[in-house]
Design a protein around this nucleic acid. Sequence first.
DNA 1: GTCTATAACACGATAGAC
DNA 2: GTCTATCGTGTTATAGAC
Lengths: 229, 229
Amino acid sequence: MARIAGSSGPRTEEAIRRAGLSLIATHGYAAMSLRQLAAEVGIQQGSLYNYFRNKQEFLFDLIRGHMLDLHAALDAALLAEGSAEARLTRFTEFHVAYHVARPQEVFICYSELRSLEPDNLAAVVAMRRDYERKLGDILDHGRATGEFRLADTRMATLAILAMLSGICTWYKPGGRLSTDGLQQIFTGMVLALAHGETQALAHGEMQGEVAEPVAVPVRRRGPLRAGVG
Amino acid sequence: MARIAGSSGPRTEEAIRRAGLSLIATHGYAAMSLRQLAAEVGIQQGSLYNYFRNKQEFLFDLIRGHMLDLHAALDAALLAEGSAEARLTRFTEFHVAYHVARPQEVFICYSELRSLEPDNLAAVVAMRRDYERKLGDILDHGRATGEFRLADTRMATLAILAMLSGICTWYKPGGRLSTDGLQQIFTGMVLALAHGETQALAHGEMQGEVAEPVAVPVRRRGPLRAGVG
DNA sequence: GTCTATAACACGATAGAC
DNA sequence: GTCTATCGTGTTATAGAC
């Protein structure tokens, strides 16, 4: 925000990065203008081009940088040995901590893939698949050893990631729960999910309790707005 | 796409609606130009203004219309009576079926809230809270009766909705799984999650297996791109 | 209801002085 | 590295003929 007369490189760069994350997370990449970004940093719009070649490259650098960090941090946090439960717990704790620490970055990496040009998108998608794979391997292993009882580990991978990544859509620092509290609650839910259908079956066939299958919703009536047609 | 000479109102309107859903889901609201939309429908750009007053109103109509449909369909599908398990199963089956039937609408309602102007946003957020509330009530009731064992029903509500709504980010018609298959798999996971920590505890204290707490990732090095500075 | 034409403006990106 | 100025294009929205 504040103008720094004759200001220097690295500081401006970090300011651009931070302002960009905030603006993109709030309004989206397409809706963020470079004039807006420059104003937030306190420089003129043309000066931004000392830090990237074009707007697309700026987005890609943000996303790619985050994915590199994420992988490095995950590899440092994951356990090579141990039960599938222990490894899944570790993964969940890591994922929650990361989302709480950097909600903007994580959110952008999910929501702005659509804004990446084909080559850039391919690079990021490959990194994302690696990440999913690491969770998938834990679940596969746990099912093989009988620790987990999952009908479909691919669906479980997607479900768990969606559930955990959803955190960054509503989490606000200083809220009701601490990072520790969130980690405990979400670890509990993820483990319960992974341990799976044992309980559902133990409680007696659930499906039998529901009378008819749920119908698919029906098409809608009426004009887009009143007074047309 | 195809041009219809001297074409008529309701058909054009529906075509605009469908094309808009597709374009917004693919590229996002801000990135969709009205020229693009008109071209998709096969009319001139100015003609769109016979169907909405401005671009924002178009988005709001799409989202609001979907939310109205969603609520009506949910109310028709939900059980007034029955165990919490039966009601949660019903909710999950409904939610999955709805997402599979209309992935674009659902996705837009999550991803384009940021593009709504304040008044419009407030209206949609209120409707969304009602929806969350209906799931929350089921979970609260289940915990009160002892059917569910959940550490935090608010977190569970958000987790379940994120997990189910994630479906529309990867689901493609004609994939490996049928709607029935998806419903079964996700119902199983949701019920397992709701039945909760019984199992985690039964398997012996999980937390004890993990040595140190997971560290929060560290800040990153280096310039945005090579050659700057 | 659709068309053509255009107003009024914002956008990303570049050039050149300092 | 930052500034000012501007080019060329794309944008939403409007006006008026048919």
